[in-house]
């Protein structure tokens, strides 16, 4: 297992490097110049502008600029936000917990729905329950998160007035009340993201379980006289989870996309809404850093998927 982990890490690092190359290429190819504004500003003499260009190495060849940017990123020097006058890394660290909380709880909700429903549907294929679950799954992943978010606000905040539709980070209540308020305001964003993911996960789980349940070792387990519950939980599900883990890991970029939208709708102070506000205020250092953080999160989740893979199927770790 140890060498397996090291090997997966060694594969993850080049893909992070590759992502950083893609990001930097996009930035380098983009028209426009961070010092453009100074060219039209009469208070800054041209000599100063040239000296600044010299200092920041804007006119150096691309690969030199890339290596300088990469070393700065690795040393934790992520630059300075133009808009809010704070270091980018402090800004992101402030915002990251809210994002991780919402994404984490929505994934737990999605799996808590998808696993039982998918398994139950697959053990009774083409039954009424299976068909209803399948129809709901189709509706679920055809409803874009931005529309479900608005629908939830309309129903639960405006018509029923049960839940707040703006996420607040400055709740004044104390003790249990504080936790209650936190949960209340997180319900809608977590539901929006979680239900969307649950729909696609249900289909993955169902087809994976259907593939496994026909195999010979399942028949053998039944022939040994094991109860149906033991057969399904110990023999079928563990094997069916292997492809599901891969598919869930592949869904991660979509999950982060959904998180950006939900954060924007419910005004959650996470890195997704930070990205949008940075784009609207032309805050390039923040945009680059947030995009890179999202890339790191995706790679991290792929790594976690690999670890789970090795645990679910020990043969993989030995290959």
């Amino acid at each position: 297992m140890g060498t397996y982990l090291v090997r997966r890490l060694l594969i993850a690092l080049p893909s992070l490097l590759g992502i950083s190359v893609v990001l930097f290429t996009v930035l380098a190819l983009a028209p426009g110049d961070p010092f453009e504004e100074m060219a039209t500003n009469p208070n800054i003499p041209p000599e100063v502008r040239l000296a600044l260009r010299e200092k920041f190495g804007i006119d150096d060849p691309v690969y030199l600029r890339y290596f300088r940017w990469l070393t700065a990123m690795m040393q934790g020097d992520w630059g300075f936000s133009f808009a809010s006058r704070v270091n980018v890394d402090t800004l992101i660290l402030q915002r990251l917990p809210a994002t991780i909380f919402v994404i984490g709880s929505s994934q737990i909700l999605a799996l808590a729905i998808a696993l039982p429903v998918g398994i139950y549907a697959a053990t009774r294929p083409y039954s009424v329950f299976d068909q209803i679950a399948n129809t709901f799954a189709f509706i679920g992943f055809s409803l874009p998160t931005f529309f479900t978010g608005l629908l939830f606000i309309l129903v639960f905040s405006i018509w029923l007035d049960w839940l707040p539709f703006v996420y607040r980070s400055d709740i004044t209540a104390t003790g249990w009340r504080w936790y209650w308020e936190q949960i209340r305001q997180a319900i809608m964003p977590v539901m929006v993201l979680g239900l969307f993911q649950a729909a696609s996960y249900t289909r993955y789980v169902r087809s994976a379980v259907l593939d496994v349940i026909r195999l010979d070792f399942v028949t053998t387990a039944r022939a040994k006289g094991l109860g149906e519950k033991t057969v399904v939980v110990r023999h079928v599900v563990r094997n069916a989870l292997i492809p599901v883990v891969t598919l869930v890991a592949l869904q991660m970029p979509t999950v982060f996309g959904g998180a950006i939208v939900t954060e924007q709708i419910f005004r959650i102070p996470g890195i997704g809404s930070l990205l949008i506000s940075a784009i609207l205020s032309n805050d390039t250092p923040v945009i680059m850093a947030v995009t890179f953080v999202f890339a790191c999160l995706v790679v991290t989740f792929n790594l976690i998927a690999d670890v789970l893979y090795g645990w679910l199927d020990p043969r993989i770790a030995f290959r």
Partner: peptide, 22 residues
């Protein structure tokens, strides 16, 4: 595989932000 692990929506937003005016 590299493109599959790119965070799509943030990248989409980044590219549109950078190239829209041009």
């Amino acid at each position: 595989d590299l493109f599959l692990s790119l965070p799509q929506l943030p990248l989409l937003l980044l590219i549109i932000y950078l190239f829209r005016d041009a």
